[in-house]
Design a protein around this nucleic acid. Sequence first.
DNA 1: AGAGAATATTCCTGTGAAGGAATATTAGGT
DNA 2: ACCTAATATTCCTTCACAGGAATATTCTCT
Lengths: 114, 114
Amino acid sequence: MGMKKATLSALAEPNRLRIVELLRDKPLTVGEIAMHLGLRQPQASKHLRVLSDAGLVEVQAIANRRIYKLRRQPFIELKTWLESFHHIWEERFDRLDDYLRELQVKEKKHHDKD
Amino acid sequence: MGMKKATLSALAEPNRLRIVELLRDKPLTVGEIAMHLGLRQPQASKHLRVLSDAGLVEVQAIANRRIYKLRRQPFIELKTWLESFHHIWEERFDRLDDYLRELQVKEKKHHDKD
DNA sequence: AGAGAATATTCCTGTGAAGGAATATTAGGT
DNA sequence: ACCTAATATTCCTTCACAGGAATATTCTCT
């Protein structure tokens, strides 16, 4: 439940976001990732390290190559978290709450006068 | 479509994440936010500024106070983006793809020998 | 064992972002 | 007009982090 920070900051870096979007289609090699995104190999490795530490990807070594693929858990967690905002995309959210809010404020003003 | 970076890096900061989670329940005043989270007022204002620039919150001025509330759009966008990873939380994702992948690799080895 | 891929790590440097403290701004009440 | 509350902004310092370049590691093949 506190791992959101790791996930979010890993994804906040543009190149890492692109890596993740690339891996959405299929697992890829470091070299392939670097090539697709126009990154130098060391930077690709470094970003993958961060993604790995954040638990967003996992590695599978095959000979020389390291194949990176997405892990499901952090995405599911993020999805779950987002769903706790479900009421936000219900249409009523927009106007209703600040009406209630305004009332509270006005009430407080009256109360202060007592 | 390119606003994900703004959204994600805004949310990547722990205090801002807490602010957003606080505003999930109802719109709040700067002072209320600061108090609830144990932040000093200036830091609260600064974080809210970032959230506002990222389009995550909007302000409504009432007298002295500024009432901050969540905006729906970025959350909907994030939700949509996450859904493009839908296939990841289907059970098959885990084992299938790297089998395919291993095959590709072996094929390549044979090919190189030609 | 030696050579050459594929990948990881280290060191360096610059930049951006967060917190603290102080100050500016704006609105309401008397 | 003044005082006070609520909020925003500025300046400063510190620290994490991204890229570049060079180097280390690990594996395969002969």
